[in-house]
């Protein structure tokens, strides 16, 4: 009898133990969180740059089309980029004034694999003033904002445009984030790249 009770005790404990999942509750997982990923070109001295221009709208890339986004949040994102760039010593100039950097902001929202490129001079709707022909192949399952800092200064020499700084904000515009939360993440992209600044007079 004692032995049976012992095994019952042992078995109950073992079942209890094995029933405990190793993962934390799903509600605690961070699926809706905004993640900011940045990468800068470590070989570039940003002090050699002073001016930039920025696209007038965020381009949303879908399976069917590329369209300019409108509304409060897209506008606030572009404004925040301006604020951060100018706080780091860069001056905004019109695209026609030969800026050293061009900033373009792209947005994707689906789970397909994207492979696309912009033809150098042929694509007339967006930044027709400089060469730009990188090919992108990537896949996302959620909204992704991509801010790119394109080097126009070296583009004339090499006939290519290099991306000197790139910021991805993942999870954006797919959850219930406020405009302030979104612009806060845009600012964070700059905060976590202290190298992106110029002191050139």
């Amino acid at each position: 009898m004692k032995t049976k009770l012992g095994f019952l005790f042992l078995g109950t404990g073992l079942i209890f133990t094995l029933s405990c999942t190793k993962y934390p509750p799903e509600s605690d997982r961070l699926l809706e969180d905004l993640v900011v990923i940045t990468q800068y070109d470590t070989k570039v001295d940003f002090n050699n740059y002073k001016t930039y221009s920025i696209a007038g709208s965020i381009m949303e890339i879908t399976d069917k089309d590329t369209v300019a986004m409108t509304g409060q949040t897209p506008t606030a994102i572009l404004t925040q980029i301006d604020v951060d760039m100018q706080a780091r010593g860069f001056s905004k100039v019109p695209a026609s004034s030969h800026p050293e950097f061009a900033i373009q902001v792209l947005y994707y929202q689906n789970t397909n694999v994207y492979t696309y490129y912009y033809d150098w001079w042929g694509w007339g709707g967006y930044y027709p003033y400089y060469p730009y022909s990188p090919v992108y192949t990537t896949s996302y399952t959620t909204g992704m904002l991509n801010i790119e800092l394109l080097d126009l200064k070296t583009a004339d020499v090499n006939q290519r445009t290099y991306v000197r700084w790139n910021a991805f904000i993942r999870g954006i515009l797919t959850g219930t984030h406020t405009t302030a939360e979104v612009t806060g993440r845009v600012n964070q992209a700059f905060v976590q790249t202290p190298q992106l600044k110029t002191t050139k007079p």
Partner: peptide, 26 residues
């Protein structure tokens, strides 16, 4: 046993590649 904690607004860096990742992480 399981020990766990959520960390908010934390930045990981990979300096030699110029990469930084800011995220809430569990």
């Amino acid at each position: 046993q399981r020990v766990s904690q959520i960390y908010t607004d934390e930045t990981f860096t990979i300096p030699d590649k110029g990469i930084a990742i800011n995220a809430e992480n569990y």
